[in-house]
Amino acid sequence: MHSFHSPGDSRRWAELVELLHGRTDSLAEVFAARVREIPEYADTQLGPGDLAETARETFSRLVDGLRSRKQHLRPGDEAGAEPEMESLLGFAAGLGAKRARAGIPPEALISAVRLDFSIIWECLLQIADAGDAALLASRVDRVWRVVDEFATRTHTSYLTERVRMAQEESSIRREFIARLFNQSSPSADTVNQVAAALGIDPAARFGLVAASGPAAAALRRAAAPGSGPQHRSRFFVHEFGGNTYLFWPLPQPRPGSRPTVPAALAGVACGYVPEAAGLRALPAAARTAETLASLLQGTDAGPLSAHEAWTRLAKQQLTDAGLDLPADLDAALAVCRSGERERLEETVRHFLQTGSVTATAERLFCHRNTILNRIGRFQDLTGLDLAVPAQAARVVVAWA
């Protein structure tokens, strides 16, 4: 029986490897021609000189790796590798990182690396004699393993570099976003720098939401890439002072249309500014959204805008200014007899919702004269005529 590992076979294999080593230039030429057929490689900024030089270096080191007596090496075993394999894997790590920085798509990288085995094997078949068939059959596993180790390390390094680049890009974006939000009125230079860093139009319209606590965590989840089939918007995140802010560019409006809440945010209780005109308006919009978030109530199950919460917002602003409208009403209604205040408040609230005595009477199953009497009684006690919009607004805000 013929031994695949006889001294004669080893010597002949060494001869074939040396012949192969002398053809690294032609191997690189074949590789460069084939890799240019991969569309993603053809469209990159890699110059022909860079591609050819890298291919020559790759095949030189791969052929060196075929001299190695160790046929398999796991990641992290470089310390115990023979010099040829150690050098090959070190080169593979650098190549993977380099291709990641060049913007080569992962599928294109894998397609290119897979060419190595077929090109080397084709060349071996060309330089081998007819009597080398059994020898080649015994060495095919070695050739495959060397190329596979190289491909695996290249791909692993590529992915690691892509992660590092993404983290670096995210960090840079966060820095620019923080610079924007830290200015109450950002300068034109700041706005343009942020727009360039984020790749957006500085004059675009933006939606913005703000939340803290569990709702803030929900916002961050909604902003995560690929958070569901409804994830259509490109969210940007800013964290400050325990609050999370999310903003996103709005699509071009259709005539008569109004901005809508992205589906990913529909169930998150947060302060909401539907539209801010340009990046420069975002800091002010963030303050508004933060204030709206502070006015959220337990019954709120989604984003709260000033359109829905203007009465709460006005009440808060007036209270902060020292004008306590609820206290004034409480004092005026304190003289009511037992049960009278509840009837008056119920009637006034319904009337303020509809502006109609008839509709209020129907809702409360009362005669319209009863409604008129209660509204008159309320006016006597408070001095507020609900038929006068400015006076009615005081009650609407006080009872927000």
Rank of each mutant, 00 (worst) to 15 (best):
T354F: 11
F117I: 09
A277M: 01
P283R: 04
P214C: 00
N243T: 15
G242Y: 07
Q45I: 11
A266C: 02
S294I: 00
S138C: 10
A224V: 06
E37S: 05
R36T: 06
L318T: 12
P259D: 03
A14T: 13
H238K: 03
L135D: 08
Y272E: 08
A301R: 15
D201W: 02
F117G: 13
A81W: 01
R12C: 08
G8L: 05
P225T: 03
L384I: 03
A217M: 11
G267M: 05
S10A: 15
L364F: 08
R220E: 12
A301N: 15
R394H: 11
A284K: 12
A387C: 06
L364Q: 11
L304W: 09
V17N: 03
L250S: 01
G322Y: 02
Q45Y: 12
L313D: 00
P39D: 00
S68V: 00
L95H: 09
Q183G: 09
V268K: 11
Q316M: 13
Q316S: 15
G207P: 06
L51F: 12
R99K: 09
V194R: 01
L250G: 01
R179M: 04
V237H: 05
N192C: 12
R139M: 05
A97M: 07
F365K: 15
T160I: 13
R34G: 01
E15Q: 15
R173Y: 05
V163H: 13
L296M: 01
S157R: 08
I38S: 03
Y158F: 12
C270N: 09
S10W: 09
V237L: 14
A218W: 11
E37P: 07
K315V: 01
E161D: 08
A197K: 07
Q316Y: 14
V147S: 05
C270A: 14
R254E: 12
A392E: 07
A130C: 03
D201L: 00
R67D: 00
L333N: 02
F378G: 04
A128P: 02
T319E: 14
S227C: 08
T24S: 09
E82G: 11
P283Y: 07
G271R: 03
E342C: 03
L352A: 01
I110S: 12
V140R: 12
F247A: 07
V335W: 11
D129Q: 13
G96T: 04
T358H: 10
A224R: 15
A108L: 06
L292H: 06
A112H: 10
A188N: 04
R145Q: 10
V30K: 15
A222M: 01
A281P: 06
S26C: 08
T244N: 06
V30Y: 07
S68F: 00
D25S: 10
E308K: 15
L198M: 05
W248T: 09
V396S: 14
L372G: 13
P326D: 00
L282H: 06
D385H: 05
E342W: 08
R343N: 13
L333P: 00
R74H: 05
A321R: 12
A32G: 08
D189M: 09
T347W: 07
L313Y: 00
A211I: 01
L333R: 06
L250I: 10
P202E: 00
D189Y: 10
T154D: 07
H238F: 06
P389E: 02
N369W: 10
F31N: 08
R162E: 08
